[in-house]
Simulated scan of single mutants.
Amino acid sequence: MNHFIDVEVQSGDLNQTLRSFLDAKDHLHFSELAFYHYYSFGGTDTKAAEILGAGIELLILSFDIFDDLEDEDSLDEPWMKMNRSVALNAATALYTLSIKVISSVSNEPLFLHKLMEYTLQSMQGQHDDLSNRPATEEECLDMIKRKSGSLTALPCVLGTMLATGEFNPAVESYACQLGIASQIENDYKALFYDSKSDIAKKKRTLAYLYLTRKFNQASIDLLNIFENEDKIADIEIKCYKEKLKEAGVTQYMYVMNQLAIQKFKKGVAELELGEMEKRRLVASILNEF
């Protein structure tokens, strides 16, 4: 990935800034999704797959940076320690570079169309998240599907298209479910992050919207706690976890996560691939996510 930065970004300071952003990236889950699908569907051009994977990781990194700047999260990351205008411009350069790299592997109009479709869908989902628009659990799941599901579908669909030359709607469908499952798990974990607490920001997450249905006294107690940041700080973690279970939040988030995973597995099972290949695809993907 540094190779593409060096080739396309001649500004020395911006080059070094982007390299520092890249150095902070500690996983390559999305490029792996592209590789798994490319090779599962018969792809043989290793160089093309590597270019696609590199471009996708640059894209995901740019989205991660945008997300942190917008949410004021991950304060230890290099882009959060510099002038925000400089960081925003660098992230925009990274995004633009990623589109150029990804689009270089295919001349098919539909390939570029799907790339831009997924990025735009994710941006729309992010807008609704930042605007705190979801008013129901259904609306929240739709927002998650557009924000996270689209970005997860992107490497899966493009990897498949690079191998076959065709768009596979079944891949798009189950990949979106994988993105939903991953986001639900992340949102549950975020309930325990002081620095990234959606609770403190009073965001309408799936957990929060579930609580607003006030199924029991524990739900009401948690809502009262969430309305007061001092109470959030005072509550002990063990008591907090027990309250979440008593209110049904823990069980609800687990069930919603598992439902999405089962839809993902069902979608893979319906692919026109050998049984061994389908089992390998599921195992590899779930190991990453």
Rank of each mutant, 00 (worst) to 15 (best):
M143L: 06
Q258R: 04
F111L: 00
E117R: 10
N168Q: 11
Q126G: 10
A34L: 05
L206G: 01
N216A: 15
E137Y: 11
K263G: 04
T44H: 08
L154A: 04
K47I: 00
E227F: 08
V255S: 14
T119E: 07
Y208C: 04
V282W: 02
E77V: 01
S85Y: 12
I220Y: 03
M123V: 14
S148A: 15
V282G: 03
A54S: 11
I237Y: 05
K263E: 14
A260E: 04
C140N: 08
S74W: 15
N15F: 01
G165R: 09
E166S: 15
M80S: 14
L110Q: 14
N216Q: 03
D129G: 11
K147V: 08
M276R: 13
D64T: 13
V282T: 14
M116R: 00
A163Y: 00
G43C: 04
K145I: 08
E139K: 06
K100A: 13
F215L: 14
V268H: 00
E246M: 08
E288H: 12
L130K: 14
A49G: 02
A207N: 12
L271S: 01
A90F: 05
T17M: 07
A54Y: 08
L158V: 07
I144Y: 01
S85R: 06
E172A: 10
A91D: 06
E139N: 13
R84N: 05
G179T: 05
Q10N: 07
F4Y: 15
Y208E: 10
T119Y: 13
L14S: 03
L61A: 04
L52C: 07
I144N: 05
P109S: 09
G165K: 06
A200C: 13
L141S: 12
A24K: 01
A260D: 11
K243V: 02
S150D: 09
R204G: 04
A34S: 06
Q16R: 09
Y38Q: 02
S31G: 09
I5D: 04
F192R: 14
L112Q: 03
K214L: 04
S122L: 14
I180H: 07
D73A: 15
H127P: 04
R19D: 08
A90D: 03
P78Y: 02
L209I: 13
S219I: 12
R133L: 15
K147N: 10
P78L: 06
